[in-house]
Design a protein around this nucleic acid. Sequence first.
DNA 1: ATAGGCCTTCCAGTCGCTGGAAGCTCAAGC
DNA 2: GCTTGAGCTTCCAGCGACTGGAAGGCCTAT
Lengths: 131, 131
Amino acid sequence: MNIGEVAAKSGLPAKTIRYYEDIGLIQPERHDNGYRVFRQTQLHKLMFVARARSLGFSIDDCRILLALYEDDSRASAQVKALAQDHLTQIDAKIAGLRAMRDTLADLVDACHGDSRPDCPILKDLAAAHDG
Amino acid sequence: MNIGEVAAKSGLPAKTIRYYEDIGLIQPERHDNGYRVFRQTQLHKLMFVARARSLGFSIDDCRILLALYEDDSRASAQVKALAQDHLTQIDAKIAGLRAMRDTLADLVDACHGDSRPDCPILKDLAAAHDG
DNA sequence: ATAGGCCTTCCAGTCGCTGGAAGCTCAAGC
DNA sequence: GCTTGAGCTTCCAGCGACTGGAAGGCCTAT
């Protein structure tokens, strides 16, 4: 398979696949003409990474997950610990965003949104905030 | 005020304040010795930006918000529209993260996390996923 | 022979900082 | 007056994960 076909099958842009090769996530072979050759296992890896990325895992996490996936003697506890850690980080991010969201929603609600300059949103931004 | 004092008062790292000058967010004057001089208005601007950033507004949004803040003839509708737009984006981000979180939580729950290699998390990553 | 679509590499840019190096200035202590 | 150390300056590089674009080679069909 050439990169275009793998891109179509994995849903990843060709650019991203080349980038993944650059950083050593995958190692496709080469045709005599310089074109990358992808075998089924490479495509499989790419799809694995694509899925992991869609769950928010970092590239470095993906590296580890791939290694664990290919290690028959892994302990599922290793995988779970990584995933649990990631889950905790996502939860923290959600909590942060929710706090933002709530404050912002209050401000938006309080703002008349008319032609007058008076605006609670700007007032909040201009007021001193501790922490 | 020198940059250190302003950093302490605004809670922003000195590096960040210099960066904000670089990109034209603020324009402090200079002492004869080259040191930046910050007046009260500059500090006020920095605190405004810090607050806006803490609510997730981009630097470009901050630029617009600052301009609106300084424009006595603004319409609050302009501010509200910007904030509403931002709020929508935050909501989208939260929704995305929640979807991730839920999938991930299910997988973590399903994984025994023991010394055996069998792992539903890796199984999910390795399976074909549409969309 | 030519057109176009695919592939290649390389460089630069995104966003919002952050770290570090090299060097100047200033205030305090001896 | 000299030293020390903190604080200031500039500039360059790097983070993460791509993404865009230019310049050029290759392949297939007409």
